[in-house]
Amino acid sequence: MLLWINGPFGGGKTQTAHELRRRLAGSVVCDPEHVGFGLHRMTPPALRRDFQDLPAWRQGVFEVLDHALTAHDGVVIAPMTVVEPQYFGDTVGRLRERGHDVRHFALLAERGTVLRRLRERGFGHVVRLAAGKDAPLRRESFAVSKLDLCLERLAGTEFAEHLWTDRLTVPQVAERIAASSGLTLAPNTDGALRGSLRRAWTGAKHIRFD
Rank of each mutant, 00 (worst) to 15 (best):
E84M: 12
D90L: 03
R23V: 01
A143F: 00
F105Q: 02
A174E: 05
G132R: 07
Q52N: 12
E110L: 01
A135S: 04
T70I: 04
L154A: 02
Q52L: 11
V92A: 15
S181F: 10
L149T: 15
P171V: 00
L54G: 00
E110K: 13
R199T: 15
D90M: 06
A186D: 09
F123T: 14
A155H: 07
E33C: 03
F105T: 02
H67S: 09
R121L: 00
E152L: 07
L2M: 08
V83G: 05
V82P: 09
E140A: 04
W4R: 07
A130N: 09
G38E: 00
A143P: 00
A78F: 11
T184Y: 06
L163W: 11
L95Q: 05
H72C: 06
E97M: 08
E140K: 12
F123S: 12
E84C: 12
E97Y: 00
D210G: 15
T43F: 07
C30D: 13
L95M: 06
G7Y: 02
A155C: 10
G7R: 12
Q86Y: 07
H100C: 05
G99V: 10
G203F: 07
L54Q: 10
Q172L: 07
L129F: 08
D148S: 06
G10H: 08
L137D: 01
N188H: 14
V29A: 05
D31E: 14
R153N: 04
T169Q: 11
M80A: 11
H100I: 02
V61G: 07
M1V: 07
M1S: 13
A200Q: 13
D31K: 10
W201G: 05
L149R: 15
E63Q: 14
A71V: 08
L107M: 05
F37A: 13
G112W: 06
P187S: 01
L20P: 02
T14Y: 09
E19S: 14
G203A: 13
P187F: 05
I207Y: 12
T81D: 11
F88A: 12
E140T: 01
E161M: 00
P45G: 01
